[in-house]
Amino acid sequence: MGELDLGMVNWARAQFTLTAMYHWLFVPITLGLSFLCAFFETIYVRTGKEEWKRLTKFWMTLFGINFAIGVATGIILEFEFGTNWSNYSWMVGDIFGAPLAIEGIFAFFIEATFFAVMFFGWERTSKGFHLFSTWMVAIGSNLSALWILVANSWMQYPVGMVFNPDTARFEMQNIWEVILSPVAVAKFTHTTSSSFVVGSLFVIAVSSYYLLKKRHIDMAKKSILVASVFGLLSGLFTAFTGDESAFVNASTQPMKLAAYEGLYKGSRGADIVAFGMLTPGKRTGDGQEPFAFEISIPRGLALLATREWNGFVPGIEDLVYGNSAEGLVGAADMIERGKKAIVDLAAYKAARKAGDDAAGKAALERFNVNKDYLGYGYMTRPEEIVPPVASTYYSFHYMVYVGTFIIFLMLFFLKAGLSDRLAENRLLLRLGVASFFLAYLASELGWVVAEVGRQPWAIQDMLPVKMAATNIGSGHVQGTFLLFFILFAVLLLAEIKIMIKQIKIGPEVA
């Protein structure tokens, strides 16, 4: 496996970034609004009041507009694994492909089937079956997210598999280890509950717009009351699962944790930086102070990462250069062992080809000693294992700040709703509209933390991104990048236009 054209790798990265972040414009609303539609329709079926039916159909219309483009962009993402990341697909397709296939033939089929009933079955099916269909769309959407997040979690924490030296592929050994890995469970609960917050804020933003315009006042108040309860509880659950995700990161991806916390030098009882600006131009091992200024909470990071006041949290430089006092091996040693593994694997293949069983057996034994470091063998220097720190650090902190702010915002909306003072609190309503966009950005930046923080690995500690791409010229990807960019821009403008038009029409004729 020779090294690939870095220009191609970066264009493939750019295309995946564009497609994934565009796809994620639609997913959080699908995950959150689907459950809110199920809540609204359940209330309609229980009360039999037409106003709840009208309200449900209105939010379902907006859900449908959003859903259509979300599906289309998700399909493009899956194809990119084949077109742009064929080395990746070759090496780990047996494992990575399984949850993606389950998502398609199981979860998405549930969504798609019941989506049709939900939209076109109001007059054709019984109330009970229609309600069941709406719940199945919500459950199916979230099950879709589960399988995709299981696949992503395996990239962050590869478990349940074994490397086959004969084919140079990773093969699945235990699917339950993959599905129930601590990273997968934390990621699924954190990602979906944060999407419930975004979905709730979407309902609050549109309803706030109506209250500011003094239209559909009763419907807007009802919607805000339900959405603020769901948003508040989901926001609190998101904070809880976010904390658990960081704790899991400490053992599975310590470099990512160090990057998003801006921790260069590890220590026992490490402080956590609540507010801080990184020193511009800071490089690993350059001796500069990591922060231009900072406000820290004593021992906060030790408590977060180890659940102990005096626990050791490794910093970026401990992981790169090693820390003998804490038993950490530096990256230079791992790179050396990785290079030996590459040589021994090549020797094993050559011996097999020549029919020399004795030499093959000896090479395989040598390979097995260092096989866990195979991915490191493709690194050229220890500092290469450090992800882009600034983008990871700032994305993480923005996400935490906005997540905390949204919890308080939900509380204020709930309080105003309970005391029937929503319509007169115009500042809160304006905040409700604006905060939707803040939360959207926080949701996108959560993925920046997850994916940029994993760099330079496609699969943590096993396969570097630079070895995962397809060996073609970058011109191929540049062309489709431009095509997707134009297509996405046109689709987004069309979607926003249709969405705004439908919101302006409102619930009467929806």
Binding site: P182, F188, K222, L225, L233, S234, L414
Partner: peptide
């Protein structure tokens, strides 16, 4: 923790619905 997170996730949806209905009744908005 796996069980806590997964049961918590289901409880989040059930409790959200029940709390929303209770508050709609309380505020005479149902």
């Amino acid at each position: 923790m796996t069980a806590v997170l997964l049961i918590g996730w289901i409880a989040l949806i059930v409790v959200s619905y029940k709390a929303a209905v209770a508050l709609l009744i309380k505020t005479n908005n149902l």
